[in-house]
């Protein structure tokens, strides 16, 4: 009886799943704060805007998306959430020749083709990133249709997806997880905290980013990055990310 109930529900719900990456993310999938903040076009960034930013993401020469926590205070300074949603990058803006800048040229796991197994490690997050990452497996995003799966053991994983700002207590566990993953492997630092501490940057007992501990292939900015941004990063690892058609 129950089974027929479920079947009926499944049939009547229709298809919930996004068409991303074949189509751009819909407004429902990416609310305003999912987009990158951009300074008002054609105007130099004012000192008041630089001062308004609580995490020093705004500098006179541009916005460091890796630091931005989407607090929206810069909106009062004429900024707008109008940039792209998918921002995964292979290099940290503040560290152009850092250890990771040389990595990530091309898709590091392209040879894995259509199947990617992801191991999620939390090293000190607020849970928002964890839940956003996990939600790519939920019906609206359904990562399994793209060959992306979560795995419960690093031994079966291809990707180490790290969320949160690394605490001292999690340094060794993170290193162990990295060691336990067989090659070829990639590391994705997801969220402002994992990249360089986010709003907690500089707190006592915290590392300033995952790449202090393990080599990172991709940084996914956002606080937290929306599920489509996580999907984009994982697809980027195997060279199947959405590319905008040239206009």
């Amino acid at each position: 009886m129950t089974m027929f109930g479920w079947l009926g529900r499944s049939a009547t719900r229709g298809i919930l799943t996004t068409r991303y990456p074949d189509a751009p993310p819909s407004p429902a999938e990416a609310p305003v704060s999912a987009h990158a903040p951009e300074p008002p076009p054609g105007v130099a960034i004012a000192a008041s805007a630089v001062n308004a930013c609580p995490v020093r993401a705004i500098a006179p020469d541009g916005v460091d998306q890796c630091r931005c926590i989407r607090c929206a205070r810069c909106l009062a300074q004429g900024f707008e959430f109008s940039g792209p949603v998918a921002l995964a990058t292979a290099a940290r803006a503040d560290r152009p020749d850092g250890p990771s800048a040389t990595r990530g040229a091309g898709a590091p796991l392209a040879r894995l083709g259509r199947s990617l197994h992801v191991f999620l490690v939390d090293v000190g997050s607020c849970n928002a990133c964890n839940l956003e990452v996990l939600s790519i497996a939920h019906p609206q995003y359904d990562a399994s249709r793209l060959g992306i799966f979560f795995t419960n053991s690093p031994r079966h994983a291809d990707v180490l997806l790290v969320v949160g700002v690394p605490t001292e207590a999690m340094v060794e566990p993170l290193r162990r997880a990295y060691e336990a993953i067989p090659a070829p492997k990639a590391v994705v630092a997801t969220g402002a905290c994992a990249i360089r501490g986010g709003v907690f940057e500089g707190n006592a007992g915290l590392r300033s980013g995952v790449d202090e501990i393990v080599p990172v292939d991709l940084y996914v900015p956002g606080c937290p990055p929306p599920p489509v941004a996580v999907l984009d990063a994982l697809l980027r690892l195997i060279g199947r990310e959405r590319t905008e058609a040239p206009t």
Binding site: R9, S10, R13, L16, P27, A28, E29, P31, V32, S33, A34, I69, R70, C71, A72, A128, E132, S135, H138, P139, Q140, C223, P224, P226
Partner: peptide
């Protein structure tokens, strides 16, 4: 289906407050 419902609530929060977690 429960997770789908949860995602709908997150989207509602996002559309009302501009941020899926109301930060």
């Amino acid at each position: 289906q429960m997770h789908a419902l949860g995602e709908e609530i997150l989207r509602l929060q996002g559309s009302v407050f501009g941020h899926r977690w109301m930060f």
